[in-house]
């Protein structure tokens, strides 16, 4: 395959950034999108140019490191797929492809296509955990969890923290991420004790980080490689309201 690529180039956080065009020939349709970029980088190296920096690690769709906005879509047009699992057979010979970083104020560009997503860590640090000292746990079967709840918790817990929800949201809102993380723990009996403080603190951290507001478009869920449902946002809205009311009247 021959591809016409337009790729974002940005020297560092302070740099303005611009697009550069590249032509890449001989791409195998069995390549993943990142392997195609590897190939481009090898070509650039051969020309003595600096390769394009992009984030990637496991390349099997689970670590959430890869990002990339491909032709406007976070992780590309394919549903339920991370960039590393997007294969070139989904493109046509001669296609033009525009590659940009995930764009959000809360995700500043480090270099080229690499962005800093540590804002997500801040949200987790605010309350995305169950306080349990190592060694203090009761027997695993001491607290039965209805299968249905365990499954719903797992649906939310699958979030890989890639940030596609933020990148695909016109407002760069992190509600899908935050709600999935809070929802997973709030749905389990183990998570009940800290449920209220969890939602209040996580939402506060989310706001603090400079994410936008949810407008219920559903773009986040549509872009999510793990298909996290908007139900978790509704649940977060509900849990937050309850927590806030309890706090006001306590």
């Amino acid at each position: 395959m021959k591809l016409f690529l337009k790729v974002w180039k940005q020297e560092g956080p302070e740099d303005e950034g611009h697009f550069e065009s590249h032509v890449l020939d001989g791409v195998s349709e069995d390549s993943s999108f990142l392997e195609m970029l590897d190939q481009l980088n090898e070509q650039l190296l051969g020309e003595g140019k600096e390769p394009i920096a992009f984030d990637h690690d496991c390349r099997e769709g689970i670590c959430g490191t890869c990002s990339l906005n491909i032709n406007g879509y976070a992780h590309g047009l394919e549903n339920s797929t991370t960039t590393c699992q997007l294969h070139m057979r989904k493109f046509e010979d001669g296609d033009s492809i525009t590659v940009e970083p995930f764009r959000a104020k809360a995700f500043p560009v480090v270099k080229d296509l690499v962005v800093n997503r540590s804002a997500f860590d801040k949200i987790i640090q605010a309350g995305g955990f169950i306080t349990v000292r190592t060694g203090s746990a009761p027997d695993g079967n001491a607290m039965p969890v209805p299968k249905e709840n365990a499954d719903l918790a797992m649906d939310a817990a699958q979030c890989i923290g890639c940030g596609a929800c933020v990148a695909s949201c016109k407002n760069a809102s992190a509600m899908l991420f935050t709600s999935a993380k809070a929802g997973h723990l709030n749905m389990l009996p183990q998570g009940q004790a800290e449920k209220d403080s969890r939602v209040l603190n996580m939402v506060a951290a989310m706001d603090e980080a400079g994410f936008g507001n949810c407008r219920n478009y559903g773009e986040c869920s549509a872009a999510c490689p793990k298909d996290i449902s908007l139900d978790y946002i509704a649940k977060l809205n509900r849990d937050y309201a309850k927590a806030k009311i309890k706090k006001v009247f306590s």
Binding site: W8, N71, E100, S168, E219, A222, A223
Partner: peptide, 9 residues
């Protein structure tokens, strides 16, 4: 984004 698109909205 250089290209603004939507999937669902």
């Amino acid at each position: 984004n250089e290209i603004e698109v939507t999937k669902r909205a």
